[in-house]
Write a protein that binds this DNA or RNA. Sequence first.
DNA 1: GATACTAGTTACATTTAGGATAGTACATGA
DNA 2: TCATGTACTATCCTAAATGTAACTAGTATC
Lengths: 114, 114
Amino acid sequence: MKDHSDLACTNVHSAIQDTLYVVNGKWKLLLLSILINEGTKRFGELARASGISPRILSKELHELELNQLVSRQVCPTKPVTVEYSATPYAGTLKEVIDAMIRWGQRHKQKLVRS
Amino acid sequence: MKDHSDLACTNVHSAIQDTLYVVNGKWKLLLLSILINEGTKRFGELARASGISPRILSKELHELELNQLVSRQVCPTKPVTVEYSATPYAGTLKEVIDAMIRWGQRHKQKLVRS
DNA sequence: GATACTAGTTACATTTAGGATAGTACATGA
DNA sequence: TCATGTACTATCCTAAATGTAACTAGTATC
């Protein structure tokens, strides 16, 4: 209600859309949350922790890597393993993720009460 | 990294999924942002402000109403108008929305710089 | 050689989201 | 009576998202 020029509104609207574009879909914020809160994980660990099928997981991780939110490191183990980590830049999304976690928890409690 | 029981993780994961379930899609957070920041708006105003087609707008507003995030009031004007407002409960999502606005703005600046 | 573990990939099917277009219903004013 | 403004709704369609199942490739182990 305060700063209400058309320009300011447009910026706010497109800022939301820009964020949604980067973290679209059912899985990206969940994956980032896991990597941020639990640290580096391998492909199989992420699949088990999230319940995402390999095909989707591979695609989501690739998209997150393109946006520099996740880094991928191949480890010379036998058999080879691949470690995925949240980048420092992903940390800037923590504010969004934490807000969503808090809201989801409160929302569930509200549903239980009513 | 701190509280790392399976239960805590499960709760965190499902909390994110619960939030995503309520505010899914391209438009719900944008609509809520408009209604929260700019106040009550009519159907046509929302359509113009957001660029959403009537069919989708109607569907999104209905879903938001079901989740008690938006209230709908018919005004006895001629022709009849309908006002949509963010409910007090929608205010609890402001934290999420503001975090996404800030992130989107910073992200765009990052893209411009690099 | 068969089996298993790693990290994917490929092909296919299904579901969902979203958009385009036109039409409905009601009232007003020309 | 016809156009206009309001708020939708119905129909159809396309594209995107997601899921399932099977399969590849490299290495190690039995």
